[in-house]
Amino acid sequence: MEPVILEGFDIEPDSDELSRLLGRKNGEGIGAPAAAAVGKVSKALDAALEESKDLIVPKAICVTAAGADLHGSEMFTDLEKVAFCVCTIGPALEERVTVLSRDGDILAAVVLDAIGSAAAEAVARYANDRIDEVAAAEGLKTSCRASPGYGDWDVKEQKALFTLVPAGRIGVTLTANSMMVPRKSVSFAVHIAEDPVRLRSESSCRNCDMETCPYRLIE
């Protein structure tokens, strides 16, 4: 199926994700201040959120295919219809983070980097919602998202996904180690069916038994 490109839409960085990335070690968010430094933190956060608006260019590209079209992967083999998608916020934000880091403004760098990650997640959510809408119009449902490198989907299969999805058209490429460039990009797949299977994924960490998975998003 022809790739569908989504662009020209606005996103808000995912607040839960932002809270997780900048939050306390015990899993609590960035709520009530603990130290006198909080004025600086909220100022840095506000400034970074404002700056990020010009640095985030959300784009996504989706291909709907049979699961078996993802060559070399066993995870989707039996699934008739799967949406494979690559999303990004573009390179500008992480380039700015690199400059801030180099100049020693680590606070601004850390906060902006987290905003970038939360924004990439928001782009994925936006693309996921569009896939859900199309599926619903056909009377179908979608599974939750699975991403290479999360749960039991090996990050090496990123290459197969990129063979299927021409992500270069939205400026996303892969390194030899299956890493997406720009870094603030998300790739995922959802199963589309009347009764979709449950794919292990970031949004199903709660149901995943890999309790020591480094990318587990829940306590």
């Binding site: 306390r24 015990n26 899993g27 609590e28 960035i30 130290a35 933190v41 850390v110």
Partner: peptide
């Protein structure tokens, strides 16, 4: 370590 501070506060310190 005890979860009193959040990440930006650690950086500010």
């Amino acid at each position: 370590e005890e979860g009193e501070l959040f990440l930006p506060e650690l950086v500010i310190g």
